[in-house]
Each structure stands twice: as structure tokens, then as C-alpha cells.
Amino acid sequence: MNTDTNVVMDDFLVRAVLAGMGVAAVTGPLGSFVVWRRMSFFGDTLAHSALLGVALGLLLGIDLTVGVLAVAVVAAILLLGIERRTGLAMDTVLGILSHGTLALGLVAVAFMERVRFDLMGFLFGDIFAVTTADIAWIYGGGALVLALIAYLWRLLLSATVHADLARAEGVPVDRVNLVFLLCLALVVATAMKVVGILLVAAMLIIPAATARPYSRTPERMAVFAVIIGWLSVAGGLGLSFAADTPGGPSIISFGLLLFALTTGLMTLRQRRSGG
């Protein structure tokens, strides 16, 4: 056993790096759209509903990622319907559902006392415990999402800028938006393992927001967001490995650090140039 320690260590570290990089590659472009569409609270709500999916998965004895994905898809479609049908402001609806679903999820998993279950792992992610199956989900789902986003790129941008103008120009806006929401649900379900339910939205928003001042085109912002996401994963995992801090929160903290540094630098430069 002792002679294997190094191999095992390398193995879980490699898996952690692979998982983190895979997630960041998808959250970059998708997160850019979340920022452009002002949907950060929406992403948060989807992520929080994931705990209900975990409970569903445990209850039915199916793959947890499938359970989470199913609940996230239902939540996304419900949210779309609620926005259209109730007179409530969207941020109120999301404020109710974001915390409501999280509370429901916490109650639901409490009923699963027979199952050995790492709640903290779901809430904050457990990147060092990702399995080969998780990585397959991250890369399979990620490839699908990236392919869809690339294929629909112009239509998605057009629908983001102005729905009616896009419709008048022949873009099937409702279908495009639905595909986007399904992609978001898939990313939430796969990213959960890495950064956890509570921090998925941060993984979407922080790299994209950091990339914004350095981008002149939407494409560049999406690519920069991926690179910044990768840097966050590398830095966060390094910190986590060296100081034994939790993986997901370390990645997000490192991302926050990058955001603060680059934004501070930008503000300083603007002030100096008299802007």
C-alpha cells in the first residue's frame, strides 16, 4: 500500500486538474452570456435547486448527476414560465426560489439518513473526490454545450441584444433561449462536483466579469473568461494542495483575487489617463 501512495496522490490530483479545467472551459462562454443577459441570480437559483436533484437521485437510486440535471431542467423551464405569467418582478421570483429550493433540498436530504452522504461536499464541491465517471460527465456534457453554443453563437448574441429585433430578423428566439437554459442546467449539474452548489454561479460570473475590460469583441471575452477560469483552477488547486484548504472555495477565492487585481489595475490606469 505504501508504495502506491504516490500513484494514488498523482491520480486524484490529475483528476482534480482535469475536472477543474473542463468545467472552466465551459463556464467561460456560458458565464459570458449569463453576464450579458443579467442572469447571475438565475444561475444561482438553478444551482440551488440542484440539492433537490441530489435528493431525487438518492431516493430513486439513480446517478446523482442525472437527478440534478433533471431538476435543473425542470427548474429552468418553470422559471421561464413564471417570468412570463406572474406580474412579480423577476428578482423577487428568483429571490424566493433561490433560497426556497435550497431550503427544500436541505430538508429533503435530511430524510435520506440511511444513506452515507457528504452534504458539505455537495454544497462546496469536492474536487479531490471526482471520479472518472464525473470527468466523463464534465467532458461529455461540456463538449455538447460548447458545440451547441458555437453553432447558435450569432443567434444567441442577437437574441441577447434585443429579442424583438432578433425575432423580426427571423431568429427563433424562444427556441434559442430554451437551448441556452438547458445548457446552463447541464453545466450546473456537472460543475457542482467541482465548486459546489453554493459557488457554481461564481464560477460562471467571476471569470467573465474579469475578462470584460480586456475584450473588444464577445468572442474574445468568452475566450479570456476560459483562460481566467483556468488560471483560477490552477491557482486554487495549488493553494488547496499546499495549505489544505477546500478545493472549490479556493478556486473561487483565487478567481476573486484575479478580478480584484485586474479591476483595480484598470481603474488606476483610467484615472491616470484622466478618464
Binding site: L157, V161, H162, P218, M221
Partner: peptide
């Protein structure tokens, strides 16, 4: 009243390109 979110970097050329 079409306004573009400041968070979306877009040049005039690219904005026109969104039409097709």
C-alpha cells in the same frame, strides 16, 4: 430604446453582423 449592456463588448461592425 435599444441599449446594449455595457458588459457586452461589441463594435458597430459586429452589431450589424448580428443581423445575419
Amino acid at each position: 430604446r435599444l441599449t446594449i449592456d455595457r458588459n457586452m463588448p461589441l463594435t458597430v461592425r459586429r452589431f450589424l453582423g448580428l443581423a445575419g
